[in-house]
């Protein structure tokens, strides 16, 4: 690959040109991150007057805290469900739209709309629809004898946040799957049709394997989304409740730190999340180019 190379006559100029970007990165990303790492090793008294250095105590406490381990489990259920559902539904929709010839643009536009809705708004939207006292869906479910109350039932609450988070992520996945499918030459599916493969077989043996780079990319993105970008949805619908049932890791950071004012523990939790993100990104860059190739 050819690299563009510019020779600067003044040695200070390149640093000067980089300075704004570096300043923003340092002030808004590196510094807070460093602060979080620092705080995670400290313990503060309730009035913020004294801070003592406690080594890994915050971390060891976390891993013996049943609430934190529970939150880990909840996060796992939530992230796996959202990733799987958002990708499966998006794949189905993309496959359907890809078959259309004339009206595909209309469908694409409509299907992308949810992506433009802010997470909190999406959360409130679903919260409203599922509201046990005034929502239309609990009423409809009630007709079938199903009682819906996400204020008391942890399962209902989990289903609600999964639906809201999935709904919002389908658009993104849909766009990538559709683009992936459109880049597969028609002649391949035609050749497969002549080779005696029916529509389902064509999809699973030709189209889906050729989409594998897209699928893998989306999987990483979706796990990331479900674990870190769903704060607004949780906050807008269940606020982690009832009884910790939807208190996923990223929400617990906020809950413990800003509401519980346990800064040390909250910082330790965010450092753990940071390590998880780093691991995911590492996996993505390390394997996406090499493993998933045909």
């Amino acid at each position: 690959m050819q690299t563009k190379r510019t020779i600067f006559s003044n040695k200070g100029l390149p640093y000067l040109l980089l300075a704004p970007q570096l300043a923003i990165t340092i002030v808004f990303f590196i510094w807070p991150a460093a602060q979080a790492v620092k705080s995670s090793f400290e313990r503060e008294d309730p009035f913020g007057l004294r801070t003592s250095f406690v080594w890994f105590q915050n971390y060891t406490r976390l891993f013996t805290d049943p609430n934190y381990l529970n939150s880990f489990g909840r996060t796992l259920i939530f992230a796996v469900s959202v990733t799987f559902l958002a990708m499966a539904i998006a794949l189905l929709l993309a496959a359907a739209v890809n078959r259309l010839i004339r009206s595909s643009n209309v469908y694409t536009t409509l299907l992308v709309w949810p992506y433009a809705v802010a997470p909190v708004v999406a959360g409130i939207l679903w919260w409203f629809m599922f509201n046990p006292s005034i929502g239309i869906l609990p009423y409809a479910l009630g007709q079938f004898g199903i009682t819906w109350n996400h204020r008391t039932s942890g399962t209902d609450a989990m289903i609600l946040v999964i639906i809201a988070a999935t709904w919002k992520q389908i658009s993104y996945n849909f766009l990538f799957f559709l683009a992936g499918m459109q880049s597969i030459p028609n002649s391949l599916t035609e050749a497969a049709a002549i080779d005696g493969a029916g529509p389902f077989k064509r999809f699973w043996t030709i189209v889906f394997p050729l989409l594998s780079p897209t699928t893998f990319f989306l999987m990483i993105i979706n796990i990331n989304y479900a674990m870190f970008d769903t704060f607004g949805i949780i906050d807008g619908t269940t606020s982690g409740g009832p009884n910790q049932a939807t208190n996923i890791l990223v929400y617990k950071v906020y809950d413990d730190g800003f509401l519980g004012l346990n800064i040390g523990s909250s910082a330790a939790q965010s450092v753990i999340l940071m390590l998880i993100v780093i691991a995911l990104v590492f996996v993505q860059f390390r394997f996406i180019e090499r493993r998933v190739q045909y």
Partner: peptide, 13 residues
């Protein structure tokens, strides 16, 4: 019938 395509249409994977 069998068809040979202009771009060969071989299954790349």
């Amino acid at each position: 019938i069998a068809m040979v395509f202009q771009n060969y249409a071989l299954y790349p994977h």
